[in-house]
Nucleic acid binder design. Structure first.
Lengths: 222, 222
DNA sequence: TTTGAAAGTGTATTTAGCACACGAAGTATC
DNA sequence: GATACTTCGTGTGCTAAATACACTTTCAAA
């Protein structure tokens, strides 16, 4: 069996929660509409799963120290049996008939610092709204959906939201991020009480600049 | 790469939380002490991961409808490189040098109803205390440990405890189960309030029999 | 009838969850 | 320099959940 790692890369642009997709290279001979997919690759011979996930990310961007978390193994024997999926496999895989198990990871990146690598192994990359994802290759729609559920869960349990924000952020930005990930409105005062109680962030001696209203205090992760 | 599923089977005997181990068959030619392992097997060609896990369980016991949950993929390239592990692989695997990725599942069985199958594919089976596990084959100690952490987590979130108890149980049994899994004392009155509020169990019109004290009310899952 | 052993139950206190509104601090415009 | 605009930052009361805590009841056995 082939084993791959697929990475659902989340980013936040202060307005929407995004997922990074790459356009799958197409066989020159076929002229189908290209498909998009979540970045992923086969696990190499001497590589752990975590290492494979890290490598895949680093082939897309030069960021280091990115938050990465394994969340589920997808092993349905037919997960790779779509028509386009098969054509793609026949062109780009040594053993196109081989079953592919994939280990899903999700990753949180600071969109502000994200620069796609010029010579990336794959095709063009796109950020798309997590709530408006087009039809993807393989079972990647399911993978993204499950990643989002796991992210929600972990956001509430471990308050990892700041991984998606710049080093310095305001509590309003953080709240908006929570609202978008959890897909519900939160009360400002209660949100602040809760976040400050968890002590995952710390106030800086610094204020927001260049805004046309009262500048907010900046925070960073503790 | 080979892909296997390993099943951490939990059982509860009213006193301790147990894990099912099987004694690995040993090559006739070698005379090492046998190793124990968690039940597991390679995933077959046309089988999903969940199906593989179910099959492994059914090769050990004839119980149906057993609670099963995927919890983690273990993919370190060296997870299978111990001396005894290698000997075992060379004897019983077609491709002993091939790397093995395993998907960890845990499973909750009613120990009272558990009967090991006579002609089980594997060696003898044992139940051992989860808090006193001997040294196991491969990375199975790590797998069991992680399974326990996940079980704790899910017990609190989803109140699945009764999966480990007979059809009819008392709240004291359930409480003891929680105390052992979570490894801490709970207050009786608060525990009852909480469990009854979650409405995952329902009171029967029936009482415990054959005990030498006030008989307790029986409950079953709702 | 007494003893032993677990069952079953209520209250008071503390803590977390939730709803809710207004003055303060900046920038831009006239 | 007054006004308008925008977001920031804050506190209180209410309700629900979490925790601590001890005595009476019910049965079987001796």
């Amino acid at each position: 069996m082939d084993v791959s790692v697929d990475c659902v890369v989340f980013g936040f642009d202060n307005d929407t929660l995004k997922v990074l997709l790459i356009e799958q290279k197409q066989p020159d001979t076929v002229h189908l509409k290209t498909q998009n997919a979540v970045p992923g690759d086969l696990v190499l011979d001497n590589e752990s799963l975590d290492e494979a996930a890290k490598r895949i990310l680093q082939e897309l961007t030069s960021l280091k120290g990115i938050y990465l978390k394994q969340f589920h193994a997808f092993g349905d024997p037919n997960r790779v049996r779509g028509l386009k999926d098969q054509q793609w496999l026949r062109t780009f895989r040594v053993n196109p008939e081989r079953r592919v198990l994939t280990i899903g990871y999700y990753s949180l990146v600071k969109l502000s610092e994200f620069k796609p690598k010029a010579a990336s192994f794959a095709g063009k990359t796109y950020w798309v709204d997590v709530y408006n994802i087009p039809s993807l290759a393989f079972d990647h729609n399911e993978i993204v959906h499950k990643a989002l559920l796991m992210l929600r869960h972990e956001l509430m349990a471990d308050h990892i939201g700041f991984e998606l924000l710049p080093e310095k952020f305001t509590l309003s930005q953080l709240q908006k991020l929570y609202e978008i990930i959890l897909d519900k409105k939160l009360d400002k005062r209660n949100f602040r009480k809760n976040i400050l109680r968890t002590e995952t962030v710390t106030a800086l001696e610094e204020k927001q600049q260049g805004v046309l209203h009262k500048p907010a205090q900046l925070f960073s992760k503790k």
